[in-house]
Design a protein around this nucleic acid. Structure first.
Lengths: 181, 181
DNA sequence: TCATTTACGTTGCTAGTACCAACTAAACTG
DNA sequence: CAGTTTAGTTGGTACTAGCAACGTAAATGA
């Protein structure tokens, strides 16, 4: 995680205004909220559109992706990576099993548990979809210089990290996400 | 596709590496795909969590937001801004009407049509939720310098614009202009 | 060892999302 | 005034999402 460019912290003095930085932070937070909102909606829509062409829902595709990247997982693990209730995860897996993209195998360590694993077909399908979606990203990046692309990556990752920190251990984390209000 | 490529598409000479720019682009596209994926999932989850505390679904909140920002809309307009089928939009509006956040008023210009308009209560609720979500963004921005925050905004907006161009007339776009590319 | 408790996953329930298709009613078109 | 188009609703189906209630298996403990 390169948290780079503390060296450029001079920007406070660059700023001709005499606003305290807190006000700028508020303004930026509002702007970021709106900008991210737009970005997320447009991506959600586009992903749905793309993925549905492969007879897969977005949640199913995300589950498949998780299993391809992280290897066989138990239902609990999959559910917590996806921020879902185990019952929802179970039904998503049902659909993937029905479509032949995933199978459940017995967990040798625990006869209650099942490991969920992508099939060869499922893995291939995921790679196809991934290539398709990456082509979309490439098209979007075409107008940006390499420098800007790097900056975009860094920033998006930082925002994601910050969000993770505030959401508890999310995707990649296996601890259960439960709201104890 | 006139993306706003500033000056040169072929800034190979800018790049100190000897990789052709296409390879870097591929690599960046993959990285961007993964990074955006993470960001979007985490945001989706967080928004759902936050919004549900106000007895509103995410789609309902988005519809309310659209109506607050854009003023009274017809169902068609709302549906196209939300990238939804009109039937889905109709049911989302039903829910909002039931909860008292929105009402349908007759369109004087067309007796078939109805204008959908947030109620005072709905507007207040949206502002509350918005403030809540913006506070989240602010917390995420705290670790970034003002420069980086500005850069993040610019980049996220550019990515959104690029995605819009590829998705046809999207949110904010009420223009019936279909893809002419 | 047997009873209790805890954990894993499934299923029933309810609400919401999302699309297509069919429908009513109003508005345009000739 | 037909005939067509447009606005919105409703029916049907599949999926998403969470809670609660299971059955079964493992862990705990007396």
């Amino acid at each position: 995680m390169p948290l780079q460019s503390d060296s450029d912290n001079k920007s406070d003095s660059d700023n001709p205004r005499d606003l305290p930085s807190g006000e700028n932070l508020d303004r930026d937070a509002r702007a970021l909220y709106d900008a991210l909102n737009q970005l997320i909606r447009v991506h959600q829509f586009r992903d749905r559109d793309r993925i549905c062409g492969y007879d897969l829902s977005v949640a199913q595709c995300y589950a498949l992706e998780t299993l391809v990247h992280q290897g066989p997982l138990r239902l609990q693990g999959l559910a917590s990576v996806m921020y879902l209730d185990k019952s929802t995860a179970s039904r998503v897996v049902d659909a993937l099993v029905r479509k032949g993209h995933v199978d459940r195998i017995a967990d040798p360590a625990d006869r209650r548990a099942a490991l969920i694993r992508p099939t060869v077909q499922g893995e291939a399908l995921y790679q196809t979809i991934r290539a398709d979606l990456i082509a979309e990203e490439r098209a979007m990046l075409e107008g940006l210089t390499p420098d800007m692309r790097q900056a975009a990556l860094t920033l998006i990752r930082q925002l994601t990290q910050a969000a993770h920190r505030r959401c508890g251990p999310g995707p990649g984390g296996l601890s259960p996400v439960q709201n104890e209000t």
